[in-house]
Design a protein around this nucleic acid. Structure first.
Length: 491
RNA sequence: GGGCCGCUAACUCAUCUGGUAGAGUACCGGCCUUUUAAGCCGGGUGUACUGGGUUCGAUCCCCAGGCGGCUCACCA
């Protein structure tokens, strides 16, 4: 720190002033009688603590607004009450400092309940000025980098993260009540599976082996179905080393649920009921607005086959057309494609465009080649759905493929197409990490072995929690619902 | 990774066509013993993201870089 701003120097001077009086500017435990959100009445003797959010000094008297995690209250100090020494010490306090106060509640002339401070304790001296009180903190870069400031300055942001916590709590409760068992499966995986996407690679020194941060928990949760657990779920982070956008953060939170003897139809019901329940308990209703779009969760939600969705909206017949006319039509619909490759993402973009202003829609029965882990409905289609809402992909589910022989074949086909793409030169990457890409397509032999022991038929559902919270809080970017989104380091 | 846009005081923002930066809040000093976006008087506290270039002169124009936002691409 070469240059320290005048404001910081000034606060350090005050800090020294406090120390010179033999007072510790960083206190310890402070026993409170009340939280600031609790109701108090005139005459109550209270002992509270919090951060000074505003100061109005009048010479021989002063008011300050004190805030803690539960609420805010005004405090009042005056010279007669505190004596000169203590009163001058109070003058060393700034907006941002933590202070504990003790006194009696009274009502001011303007009718505000206020604590008349008889004694106060400095709990923490703040050395940096807080963002401006009226306009708050708007600079998104500072908001994301220094989330603590965002939380201090912007109440709506605190509300978002409170809702996030409640949502996960309610979700757990709902699943627990229905007999689902919450489990934790490896984040560090020797073979990352269960989804697409480039994994993050790391290394375990003792075992002298490379490991990958999981891109999905799927293959481990299915092993638990093999093991005899019939209803399991996991709420936790997955990691994908892909592009970052308003809907993608390298680490994101997913719910994955598996239920034995069920299928994707059951998962549709589960998704409907769970999300409706979340909306009712957190938003107080099943209608809300996301970025100007009216979203209505009234059941049953629309079901649309993948085939229909593309045909109706774009005249694209995925079962009839060859790659060339398919890519042409996708392009003319305004979705860009790299090369001649029809990716799952391109198709999803297409769907998102047409479903963007609608209430929840299940797009069902995907082309089987797009879902190697799903049970086939017939030759070309798989029992899979994706749930779209507010123009965003929220959930994804299958009737889980439990035939070990077919599973191996489907993995191999997948591997083949990846190799084909390689040959076609679509992977002209010089990134050394891409070497792991071929590795990561390795078949998870233990997963196949588990299936060979027998996995009951099951439905499985993955739900993007961050995205659901975006919808519920009307947040335009996933960064608004993740406390510390990934950013490049400063300087 | 590509395209577009942005970066000015601690914060929120101005600064016209290139003439050397200014408001509010915050902060400092003064007055003020019930204020609440307290008030009144006085004070501008600055590496204009960084580094080059053009120019008599650059916050402004040009080039390179950094960080961020949006968007496109990638994400069985």
């Amino acid at each position: 720190m070469a240059e320290v701003s005048e404001l910081i120097k000034e606060r350090r001077r005050k800090l020294e002033g406090i120390r010179e009086r033999g007072i510790k500017p960083y206190g310890g435990r402070f026993q409170r009688s009340h939280c600031l959100g609790e109701a108090v009445e005139i005459g109550d003797k209270v002992k509270v603590a919090g951060r000074i959010m505003a100061l109005r000094s009048h010479g021989k008297t002063a008011f300050a607004d004190l805030r803690d995690g539960s609420g805010q209250i005004q405090i009042y100090v005056n010279l007669d009450l505190l004596g000169e020494e203590r009163y001058n010490l109070f003058g060393k306090l700034d907006i941002g400092d933590f202070v504990g106060v003790e006194g009696e509640v009274f009502k001011t002339r303007t009718g505000e309940l206020t604590i008349k401070v008889e004694n106060f304790t400095i709990l923490s001296k703040s050395l940096r000025p807080l963002p401006e009180k009226w306009h708050g903190l708007k600079d998104v870069e500072i908001r994301y980098r220094q989330r603590y400031l965002d939380l201090i300055a912007n109440e709506e942001v605190r509300k978002i993260f409170n809702l996030r916590s409640s949502l996960i709590k309610v979700m757990r409760q709902w699943l627990d009540e229905r007999g689902f068992l919450e489990v934790e499966t490896p984040m560090l995986q020797p073979i990352p599976g269960g989804a697409a996407g480039k994994p993050f690679r790391t290394h375990q020194d003792t075992l002298e082996m490379d490991l990958y941060l999981r891109i999905a928990p799927e293959l481990y949760l299915k092993r638990l179905l093999v093991g005899g657990f019939e209803k399991v779920y996991e709420i936790n982070r997955s990691f994908r080393n892909e592009g970052i956008s308003t809907r993608h953060n390298p680490e994101f939170t997913m719910l994955e649920v598996y239920q034995a003897y069920a299928d994707y139809q059951d998962m549709m019901k589960l998704a409907e009921e769970l999300i409706t329940h979340l909306a009712e308990s957190l938003l107080g209703g099943i209608k809300f607005t996301y970025q100007g779009m009216e979203i209505d969760l009234t059941r049953p939600w629309r079901r649309l086959t993948f085939h229909q969705a593309l045909k109706e909206n774009y005249g694209v017949d995925i079962e009839e057309e060859d790659i060339k006319s398919l890519t042409e039509k996708i392009r003319s619909a305004g979705v860009k494609l790299e090369g001649e490759k029809v990716t799952r993402t391109a198709l999803i973009r297409l769907l998102e465009k047409s479903l963007s202003s609608t209430s929840p829609t299940f797009v069902i029965d995907y082309p089987a080649f797009l879902c190697p882990l799903a049970k086939k409905k017939d030759e070309s289609r798989a029992e899979r759905f994706e749930l779209f809402m507010g123009g965003c992909e929220i959930a994804n589910a299958y009737s889980e493929l439990n035939d070990p022989i077919e599973q191996r074949q489907r993995f191999q086909e997948q591997k083949l197409t990846d190799e084909e793409e390689e040959l076609r030169g679509h992977h002209e990457s010089k990134n050394p990490l891409d070497q792991t890409c071929s590795q990561e397509k390795m078949i998870d032999e233990d997963f196949i072995r588990a299936l060979e022991y027998g996995m009951p038929p099951a439905g499985g559902l993955g739900l993007g929690i961050d995205r659901l919270i975006m919808l519920f809080t009307d947040s335009p970017s996933i960064r608004d619902v993740i406390l510390f989104p990934q950013l490049r380091p400063e300087k």
